[in-house]
């Protein structure tokens, strides 16, 4: 019988879970496979976050701070679980880390293994990875973190920038049929950032429909009204190079019909997929996955943060595409569910 909780994944969800457990006085171990905490936003140097355009690093720093030097909380980076045995209340977990292998006991496990961006090389229409000036939103976050936005091929400031929504989402050809939920909003924010850095740039967003859901609806208004970002209804069919520029072809399905226009930089709103860590941990813990590959909760209505495997709790983008603020909320929620679970067993 162990009183400790193992948290797998040190992104926003895992960090929030670890801090919450420390607040509750529950012993915990946080394991992160990367050398640094902060998850995908850290790994890919995200620039500004939805909805308020706050710098990502400014929001990550306090999350990381809250898990440092806490009593009863061990934080291991560069480490990952390699084998799990036992059952709820007494999991035996083998960890591989920089100091070699170790085994630890955990009463409960929180899985917060997150997502990976869709690999846009799988969508052959857009030539991602073969034309340097076709980038994805992940690359764009890093590029926008620099003082000036430059296009990769020649370091010039791009004057015509286009965004293509739904790359690797809602598309049977690439195999991902779900909506990745965040990309519409992220692209609105990135488009605004492009205009902030270079107000003379022409920025277009090519959309099938805009899913800046809920309170995020203002993002595309702001992008249009305050920054002059242009929206074209139509999914781009293909990108091809011509004379040092990118020829972008598609159909404006509302107004202009077919178009073939040059751009300096094209940004693909590559969607979200379960990360490699999520796939591995699902196998280790025998966790059910829903048809798109994300982790499936025991009951999405009444137990949205619990796996069908007793003693295993779920949080963050390994469950479905979501923003980091939702992931933080779920991390805290999963921590409470795990603490309650351990307490109920101890009382038994």
């Amino acid at each position: 019988m162990s009183e400790a909780v193992l948290i797998i994944g040190g992104g926003p969800a895992g960090l929030a879970a670890a801090a919450s457990l420390a607040d509750l006085g529950v012993e915990a171990v946080l394991v992160e496979k990367e050398p640094e905490l902060g998850g995908t936003p850290k790994k890919y140097a995200y620039s500004k976050l939805v909805p308020d355009l706050r710098p990502a690093q400014e929001t990550l720093a306090p999350l990381v701070q809250r898990v440092q030097g806490r009593e009863g909380l061990r934080v291991l980076t560069d480490a990952r679980p390699t084998a799990v045995s036992g059952k709820a209340g007494d999991f035996k977990v083998r960890l591989a880390g920089p100091a070699g292998e170790e085994e630890l006991s955990a009463g409960a496990i929180i899985v917060a293994t997150g997502f990976e961006h869709f690999d846009a090389r799988r969508d052959t229409k857009y030539g991602y990875g073969i034309y340097p000036d076709v980038v994805d939103i992940r690359d764009m976050e890093r590029m926008l973190s620099e003082p000036q936005l430059k296009r990769p091929s020649d370091g010039q400031v791009p004057q015509r920038v286009g965004f293509i929504l739904c790359v690797g989402s809602r598309d049977r050809m690439v195999g991902n049929t779900y909506c990745s939920r965040v990309c519409c909003s992220v692209c609105c924010v990135q488009a605004i950032e492009v205009k902030e850095k270079n107000p003379s740039a022409e920025v277009y967003i090519f959309y099938m429909d805009i899913r800046t859901y809920g309170l995020l609806e203002n993002l595309y208004w702001e992008a249009q009204e305050e920054h002059g970002v242009l929206f074209v209804k139509g999914r781009v069919g293909e990108i091809l190079p011509r004379d040092g520029q990118l020829m972008v072809k598609g159909e404006d399905t509302l107004l202009r019909g077919p178009f073939e226009v040059p751009f300096d930089l094209m940004v693909l709103a590559s969607g979200m997929e379960p990360g490699e860590g999520t796939v591995q941990v699902a196998e280790l813990l025998n966790l059910a996955r829903e048809p798109n590959g994300f982790l499936a909760p025991r009951d999405s209505h009444t137990a949205p943060l619990e796996a069908a495997v007793e003693g295993v709790f779920l949080a963050g983008a390994d469950l479905a595409p979501k923003f980091s603020d939702d992931a933080v909320a779920e991390g805290a929620g999963a921590a409470v569910r795990a603490a309650a679970f351990l307490r109920s067993r101890a009382g038994r």
Binding site: R121, R122, T124, I130, R172, M173, V174, G175
Partner: peptide
């Protein structure tokens, strides 16, 4: 260069044919 571009392994689209 472009035609000759090599990758260690292909990224196949995920469509289930």
């Amino acid at each position: 260069d472009l035609a000759r571009m090599r990758v260690p392994s292909r990224k196949a689209p995920g469509k289930k044919p």
